[in-house]
Amino acid sequence: MQPLRLSTRLLLALATLSLVATYFLPLWEIQLWAPQYPEGLNMKMWLNRITGDCDIINGVNHYIGMKTIKAEMFPEFKYMVYLVGVIIAIGFLPVVLGRRRWLMVFVATLILAAVAGMGDYWRWSQDYGTNLSPKAAISIPGMSYSPPIIGYKSILNFVAYSGPDRGGWIFIVVGVVAVGLLTTEIWLDRRQLKK
């Protein structure tokens, strides 16, 4: 029943609290550039909506028969706000109960959420990039228009970038902090035991 140090609990409280900001910041962004879009087109994913140049992107994509991007397409937007609420609640368990086991639960939850989130994004991007309308004006056999999962990718004359936005970075930092705190706790406990 390893108790958590006070400083760990305070830092964890701060980190968990910062997750509230993800309600007000975009989590993920996709950017597209092409010669005719020098300013770039972007799309930002929030907990409950998509913003950005969706209309222009939909306009570009109608040639090749991609689905029109609309918030209603994503059931995720209906429950993600609650999921993050649950994650925040789990984050406060080790803070309040002060036990290392609960910190482990929180770390596991964050990793699980990250894997599930990326998996969901991959599934969505695959469907979007390959499941094209048979009535499309332009069709290139075997061509996939899926955006990259993370980083840069060339799609015809477009260069696409996909990566975390501010909300996503907060998640990543909270994850790193949680893992860091857990590691330091274990490391410090072991050092004490040796003494």
Partner: peptide, 18 residues
């Protein structure tokens, strides 16, 4: 960690080839 966060805020930069 703060440095990583700062770097994270600089998101996708316009690729040179464009």
């Amino acid at each position: 960690l703060a440095a990583i966060t700062g770097a994270g805020l600089l998101t996708g930069c316009k690729p040179k080839q464009l």
